[in-house]
């Protein structure tokens, strides 16, 4: 959604979700090329009726300029993840580097017994990386939440 880049606009959207009992799986927000507008991407879940209500309720907020549901649209979806992983001994370190490469990620910080790996992609890809790395090796993860954009001719698959 596009909304006025004003203090309070974010809390109004967040408040609406909690006040009406809609869940937020992730939420990202940042200013757009027009500095008076921010773009927010919210990932939520609900049946068609719930999503329809969410759209209407969000649209009703005075600061919200435009809302689109891009669930069904052709879209690009990206999330950035930083993962601190265990990396002790040559073999483990090599294995982790390989894994990062497979996922088109990069090792961005190195310490004697751990790496920080950066991976970007859609949610499935990030989940897959975590699975591949193995739960025991993961010390800490930070994810930005999803941002998404509809492709040109975004309607239809």
């Amino acid at each position: 959604m596009l909304m006025e880049n004003e203090p309070g606009a974010l809390s109004r959207v967040a408040n609406l979700f909690s006040a009406r009992g809609y869940n937020i799986e992730s939420l990202t927000v940042a200013p757009t090329e027009d500095p008076t507008l921010s773009r927010m991407t919210v990932v939520t879940a609900g049946d068609d009726a719930v999503v329809e209500q969410i759209m209407k309720q969000v649209n009703k907020l005075i600061e919200v300029f435009k809302v689109s549901d891009i669930t069904e649209a052709r879209r690009l979806e990206r999330e950035l993840m930083l993962v601190k992983v265990r990396a002790e001994g040559g073999e483990a370190r090599a294995e982790m580097e390989r894994l990062a490469r497979i996922f088109r990620g990069a090792v961005v910080d190195v310490s004697p017994d751990s790496y920080i790996v950066q991976v970007a992609g859609d949610r499935k890809k990030l989940d897959a990386f975590l699975r591949a790395a193995g739960g025991a090796n993961i010390l800490e993860t930070v994810r930005t939440g999803v941002c998404a954009i509809a492709r040109a001719n975004g309607k239809g698959k």
């Binding site: 009726a49 329809e52 209500q53 209407k56 649209n59 009703k60």
Partner: peptide, 11 residues
């Protein structure tokens, strides 16, 4: 006048 009143409780 409020789209969110429509189809909120009853389709």
């Amino acid at each position: 006048i409020d789209p969110s009143s429509i189809s909120k409780r009853v389709r």
